[in-house]
Design a protein around this nucleic acid. Structure first.
Lengths: 332, 332
DNA sequence: CTGAAAGCGCTTACAG
DNA sequence: CTGAAAGCGCTTACAG
């Protein structure tokens, strides 16, 4: 039924080895032989069976990207970039939605997809990588995000403390003095970004009011909306809010609109991620903009380097460039 | 290095056949044997090698989802649902970004990922499925969207003509008379939704003005923004716009905001897709809301049925339930 | 370059 | 239930 390598060899009048050499771009093939083989491949519509190849080689040229949820715009945009970066290098990305289950558990349970994939780019949410060991994984792994890699894994992340400090400082620079933070939950993201937020307040000699730090239950629009409602109910509401991601900020802006308030006039709002949504919202959203293409390209490169055998090199920690995008929600 | 089936068999003191039976949940295993095998699996941390399994069985329990772009919220949300629906049935989804390349070309070129996947759920953009033959694909395929399946494939789609007619009729019902349409491009989506749009105008006895039908170059926010600018530049701008997807509508709303105009006061806007973004935008976006979970579940079920061997059954065409969500952009 | 053969780790008839 | 063996379609030493 399916065409096999040997069929191609027969059709081209060469050995299977030669066909394999052509397919895998090995040297020492004359142009004439290559042409013959390629003609046979085209004539038969032959496609290599990746299961067989990967069984034999122990490599599949598939990598996995594990993200909390693909419907979240930041991860959707990141996934698109990583998929593109991988494709440029001839490898395919499988997207894995962890959906907030304990991702380490999932990783181990799934057994890395039965060894199909060569490595994984992992954006953890519940897992503490410090507890993950290389042995648990058994494959190269690149971490994304603020969680410390514990010297065990390669990692690509924005300097979240610095970026959060910049975002908060920006609010101070436009004259705000009572600045809230939304998203200070128990996650690494919450912890690290709060650190930057507090650092900026301190540097400006501003008091730190615990009532202005809202945890919420997640990082979605609805959580931002709910947290903003809490802030508006305060005896003394803030004049600015730093939301730890854009989704929270968008939700917060909705609450302001519902309350008949305007950003930045009543309350200035700044986010983090620079998802496209924020660039079209009314008002447009000021935000920290990490270079997602850079992030994707470097995460893939790091992983492929490990897969290629650089297993013993020291673990690398790459810092993603970012900019502060000032838009309507803090300008005017 | 890696643990194999035979290692498990040795550890449990049974045959490889028995281990295989346990793993694949075949009958005729005593509880005692099963327990022994499971203990051995746990002790050794054994995971089946999916490449070997799929090579042998000719089935991988992987399916592909081919979408134009995963960073587009509608497709991201749909991908999340399909991924979830598949996981419930024990199968894994590989997401494939076609990125507007001729997708049929891509499908054939990629050779269905070298036979790794068992079937594909395909949301075409440039391809004309009528030209695709089952032989080209060689695997079960379920089509998503308005393109006619030509009786060759299973298909799951919203009745776009009806839904577009409903959306337009809604604009008429709130008193609008000069209703524009954005997104009437050369794609199937554009053609079909325009049909519903025109149908509604005709039913209401409203004139059809070609100047109010804008094609744009795509279905992104920026295209909606550009089209709305064109409409505002008209000697006689519309009092309402039906955008063929939410992204276009969100872009159109941005242009209105930039021009100091308000929806629905100056121009009412309705979209199509019901992405989360629209529910938080200011104003919130009225839209056609297809049941994405229903869509995902049925698309996966249809595909798995074919994969299971129902290859010869007549091709099915499923219609996705939808509702019209009336929000701020048309109410008030 | 060729040709014959082994082996990756499974599943599955086959004989018992 | 067991045990021995074939075979899925590749890649890769091996001898030439």
């Amino acid at each position: 039924m399916a065409t096999r390598l040997s069929d191609v060899a027969a059709q081209a009048g060469v050995s299977v080895k030669t066909v394999s050499n052509v397919i895998n771009d090995y040297p020492h093939i004359t142009a004439r032989t290559r042409a013959k083989v390629e003609a046979a491949i085209a004539a038969l519509g032959y496609r290599p069976n990746v299961s067989a190849r990967s069984l034999r080689k122990g490599r599949s040229d598939f990598i996995a990207l594990a993200i909390p949820e693909m419907a979240s715009p930041y991860f959707a945009e990141l996934g698109a970039e990583i998929s593109r970066a991988a494709k440029r290098r001839g490898i395919t990305v499988l997207i894995d939605q962890t959906e907030g289950e304990s991702a380490a558990e999932k990783l181990v349970l799934d057994g890395m997809r039965g060894q199909l994939i060569d490595g994984i780019i992992f954006s953890p949410i519940t897992t503490v990588p410090a507890k993950l060991t290389v042995a648990d994984i058994g494959k190269p792994l690149v971490l994304l995000g603020e969680r410390p890699a514990g010297g065990q894994f390669d990692r690509v992340a924005v300097n979240s403390v610095q970026a959060s400090c910049d975002a908060t400082t920006h609010l101070i620079s436009i004259g705000r003095r009572r600045i809230a933070a939304i998203g200070v939950g128990g996650t690494s993201t919450g912890v690290v970004r709060r650190k930057g937020y507090r650092k900026a307040l301190k540097a400006a000699g501003l008091p730190h009011d615990p009532a202005l730090e809202l945890a919420g239950t997640g990082y979605h629009r609805e959580d931002g909306a709910a947290s903003m409602r809490e802030l508006l109910a305060l005896p003394e509401p803030p004049d600015a809010v730093f939301c730890f991601n854009d989704l929270l900020a968008l939700g917060a802006l909705r609450t302001l609109a519902d309350a008949g308030l305007r950003a930045p006039h009543d309350i200035a709002v700044v986010g983090f991620d620079d998802i496209e949504d924020g660039r079209y919202h009314s008002p447009t959203l000021s935000t920290i903009s990490p270079d997602k293409e850079w992030l994707a390209d470097n995460a893939v490169a790091l992983l492929l380097d490990r897969i290629a055998g650089n297993g013993e090199a020291a673990h690398r920690d790459l810092t993603v460039p970012y900019t502060l995008q000032i838009r309507e929600s803090t300008a005017g």
